[in-house]
Amino acid sequence: MNLPQIMQYGLSGITVGSVYAIVAVGFNIIYNTTGIINFAQGEFLIVGAMTAISLSHVVPLPVAILGAVLITTALGGLIELVFIRRVRDASVLRLIIVTIGLSIVIREAMLHIWDEKPWSLPYFTGTSSTTVSILGAYISVQVLWVLGVSAVIVTALTLFFRYTTTGRAMRACSDDRMAARLCGINDRWMVTLSFMLSAGIGALAGCVISPITQTQYDMGATLAIKGFTVAILGGLGNSMAAVAAGLFLGLLEALVVSQFASAYKEVVAIVVLLLILVFRPSGLFARRATSVRTA
């Protein structure tokens, strides 16, 4: 392979990788406050993108995206209030099963609303043929949008968790829920907030990739398993490491696609997932057997 080809594959790897990272961050936010994995995480991306697509027929694109993010955020909060909160003696097994059920119901609802067709948002700037050239590789302007938005999301979240009172309260809940409650933190509300937050950033990520990958009602499951792989690779709960892991998985997939048939692309993440679960369940970056949890 020559340099432009390497760049081409590399950039496409980084693009999908940054989306995986956002999904993983969504997993992490909920995992940190509740200790459960939300199997419906992938569905948030698709709901966000689909809503934006429908809204974009009536209002300008930025308004449509904003509306979609708000609606999905509300959906996330609603899911927590109506379902998660009401699970009696909530064991991990039980909560997992509820989120699996939710993911299916949401997916089927989307099938009935938007049917089986793949839809897509228009390109944010320019058209599908507007490209920029970097070191001989041609990339769509939308790729820059994906990378930019991902970077903004991750940075904003880091700042939010580090410097705002609410962010700190959420971190306190993840460290020790009882202690946080004793300090006067409304831990229930923090859980609701974590669902809203992760639904919201999921929706935004879903919107930004929609022009490139298109959006179909059943794409959530694939995204979820890849996002989960990335979250585990980085160590559950560790969002900064998830970004590195996301880029790693994206590049690995791009490498496999460049060398073998693209049919194997889907298997890469699963194989990586199984390997990491077997050999290093605490993640690639864990220093000790028990990983350090930082939001």
Partner: peptide, 24 residues
């Protein structure tokens, strides 16, 4: 052999991964 050592969502995802591989 390797997977049954895992717990909770790790086991769920690992078996899900196995199912997806068979599907592919």
């Amino acid at each position: 052999l390797p997977v049954i050592r895992l717990k909770g969502h790790y086991l769920a995802m690992a078996t899900l991964g196995f199912g997806l591989i068979i599907y592919r």
